[in-house]
Amino acid sequence: SADYSSLTVVQLKDLLTKRNLSVGGLKNELVQRLIKDDEESKGE
């Protein structure tokens, strides 16, 4: 998976916004949300 932890919070929020995901929470939560979304989209 992508190394989201190396991105800035601003970059993470931009990715979340593009996916229509919540941008609330700490950086670690944003990273986990993106990883979870990646895993769910692979399952389709």
Rank of each mutant, 00 (worst) to 15 (best):
S1P: 14
A2P: 15
A2M: 15
A2H: 14
A2K: 14
D3G: 07
D3I: 07
D3N: 07
D3M: 07
Y4S: 01
Y4F: 04
S5N: 15
S5G: 14
S6M: 08
S6P: 04
S6R: 10
S6E: 13
S6I: 07
L7K: 05
T8A: 06
V9H: 06
V9Q: 06
V9E: 12
V9S: 06
V10L: 11
V10D: 15
V10P: 14
V10T: 14
V10H: 12
V10K: 14
Q11K: 06
Q11Y: 02
Q11R: 04
Q11H: 05
L12V: 03
L12Q: 00
L12S: 00
L12N: 00
L12M: 03
K13S: 05
D14Q: 09
D14F: 06
D14I: 09
L15F: 05
L15I: 10
L15Y: 05
L16A: 05
L16K: 00
L16G: 01
L16D: 02
T17A: 15
T17C: 12
T17I: 13
K18M: 08
K18P: 00
K18E: 10
K18G: 08
K18H: 08
K18N: 08
R19G: 03
N20S: 08
N20G: 15
N20Q: 09
N20Y: 05
L21M: 06
L21Q: 04
L21A: 03
S22C: 10
V23H: 07
V23L: 09
V23C: 09
V23F: 05
V23K: 08
G24A: 15
G24D: 15
G24N: 15
G24L: 11
G25I: 01
G25L: 01
G25N: 02
L26A: 14
L26M: 12
L26T: 15
K27F: 10
K27E: 05
N28I: 12
N28R: 09
N28Y: 09
E29L: 05
E29A: 07
E29C: 08
E29Y: 00
E29G: 02
L30F: 02
L30R: 00
L30K: 01
V31M: 08
V31K: 04
Q32C: 11
R33T: 04
R33E: 02
L34R: 00
L34Q: 01
L34A: 02
L34M: 03
L34T: 02
I35M: 10
I35W: 04
I35L: 12
K36L: 10
K36D: 14
K36T: 10
D37S: 12
D37T: 04
D38Q: 04
D38F: 05
D38W: 05
D38I: 06
E39P: 03
E39V: 10
E39A: 11
E39I: 12
E40G: 09
E40H: 12
E40L: 13
E40W: 10
S41H: 15
S41A: 11
S41Y: 10
K42R: 13
K42Y: 10
K42C: 12
G43F: 12
G43A: 13
E44Y: 11
E44T: 13
E44P: 13
E44D: 12
